[in-house]
Design a protein around this nucleic acid. Structure first.
Lengths: 186, 186, 186, 186
DNA sequence: TATGAATGAGCGTTCATTCAT
DNA sequence: TATGAATGAACGCTCATTCAT
């Protein structure tokens, strides 16, 4: 039984399955056969869309980090709220979409996948955060010299705080908000 | 020709070789055979000391992160300098030892190794930074509510800033110092 | 040079080679590489057809025991001869096909293989023998209470007698016939 | 800590542990290391007592089959009861000692071990059974031509009957007794 | 007699990748 | 575009066995 689909559709199908399975089992323990089987397709077909397993993996990380960053990018583009309010709302915004896949990312097996993805996401969030901080500075809400470094600290510091064990997600977010308000002198 | 060594010595020998090679080629492209060959020993011997390749890898990360954290731990234990001065000196201190192995960590192949190691290092640095911040607060130099979260942001923010491309190491460090002084209200 | 075959054909090819080599060298001393090499095929291919070496071995035993039992199954289905005559003819019938592979089964190396196969064969022969004895009883030729146990003794006793050393095959068969006639009160 | 023992004691200690573990895990999945560890001894020591793993295995089978046969050998040497009574008592006699280790022999893993041991045991029982039948014939209780073949059928038939599934041990033994009485014309 | 670190060869297995169809 | 049998290279790992102590 041979089902033909639009190349873009097939490509996305492979990416979706790969995300799922890489997320569950990690890079090494996932085989191309696993991915192909998950969408009911011949192994060879994956190689028409991605030159190698590693390239597929990188595409997955790239695309999924973008997906996770997207709602925040939207938010950043549209908002002109005061920074204090943004900090209040931001984490919730980010997590909206995240939570859909959140379950995947906390096994023992896939810790490395999680880490790689988180870092990629940070990379994408930094310029957004930087723009927000820039505008806040332009409006006189804050007064640091270097919005880029400030953005880096905000984003990666948040990563670290979320990584931290021992608290509920909600508690972590509350602490993040409090510290950001302090550090940015709001 | 059979050379017998003290178990601890052999174990460390394996760990050292593994660090070297994992750092050069990354986890997957490194085989146990590579490591064994590097120290002129039978493959099987590695399995007397580590139950699996993954366990060996984890031990390498663990030990090397400790090694990198050690000088800073020393520094933290002995110092009672004002926070401002610590920030001035700290990065240099950390990098002393780091630089010895620094060359290993920036290939394209081993990015994942680097990332994992950095994160492990951050884990180890957070409690040290926390203690320093605590003491500074006790001395009235700073006034945040939550030294733990502050430490997390300092350490992970620094990670992000060092990860950032496009600047020399020295420039990055300068920006880190500046932002820390600002964020901690010094 | 890549030769593709029908899965069933390939599967059988592997089974045949495996029988040959397991029979010659025994389970442990046979490697999958040996089997693959014998049919000029990549090792990995064996794992498309059998999930493990042990599963392959079991399939070999199973299939070959069936093969050896088959002529006797034929015979059982068609015959309605008196029991006395069946005993006279039976061993010869069984051994027809057996002898084709007989050479394989008497090295020192493969004793275990032989034993396992023999036992499997006995398992398959018992129900056939039971049916024969049942019919003989229905015809009043014999008069035991429990045809199943009788069949078990006939089949396994024969196994023991053939296993026994020191006589030619023909002599053993003659003794088997004589004892069966006696034990069944013919 | 180095404990020296009489060679014979050590040898037996190794045999006992090997029986235990071969019985549990089967030949292949048992390593010399397992056996050595079980008695708290260095691997190398096993090689002072047995030239190879296979030799150790064979010794285990040999010795344990003898152990199992021993009570029946005793019985055979001392008894001059009528055959009918021997048949009544025999199975119980055999199983006395057997049952001590019986638990070991019915996993899926060690089926092959069980089979090999059973066959070895049969080998050892045949001459005993033969002597008993011989004496019974001398006393005029039975009247077959060939006591050897009769013994073979009795012993191996019993093996098959015990191997058979679906009945309790007690039921099997009852059927064996009944058939033997019939087959030997008692 | 006993140790246990070390060997070294090999094995089962996996899998990314290819290619004839 | 899609299949899936086939490849081939390697890899993690095991283990019987040895040997310096």
């Amino acid at each position: 039984m041979r089902i033909t689909k639009e190349p873009e559709v097939r490509r996305q199908e492979i990416l979706d399955a790969a995300l799922q399975i890489f997320g569950e089992k990690g890079y090494e323990k996932t085989s191309i056969a696993d991915i192909a089987k998950a969408i009911g397709v011949a192994q060879g077909l994956c190689y028409r869309y991605f030159p190698s397993k590693e390239a597929l993996f990188d595409s997955v990380i790239e695309q999924y980090a973008s997906l996770l960053a997207e709602p925040f990018a939207q938010y950043e583009k549209e908002t002109d709220k005061p920074l204090r309010q943004i900090i209040e709302e931001m984490p919730a915004t980010i997590e909206d979409r995240d939570s859909r896949y959140y379950a995947l990312f906390h096994g023992a097996e896939n810790a490395k996948f999680h880490v790689l993805l988180s870092l990629k996401l940070c990379e994408k969030l930094v310029p957004l955060a930087e723009r927000i901080l820039q505008r806040a500075r332009d409006r006189g809400e804050v007064s640091f010299d270097d919005p880029h470094t400030a953005a880096v600290f905000c984003v990666y510091g948040q990563l670290g705080a979320l990584q931290d064990d021992g608290l509920t997600r909600e508690e972590k977010l509350e602490k993040i908000r409090a510290f950001l308000a302090f550090a940015l002198h709001l």
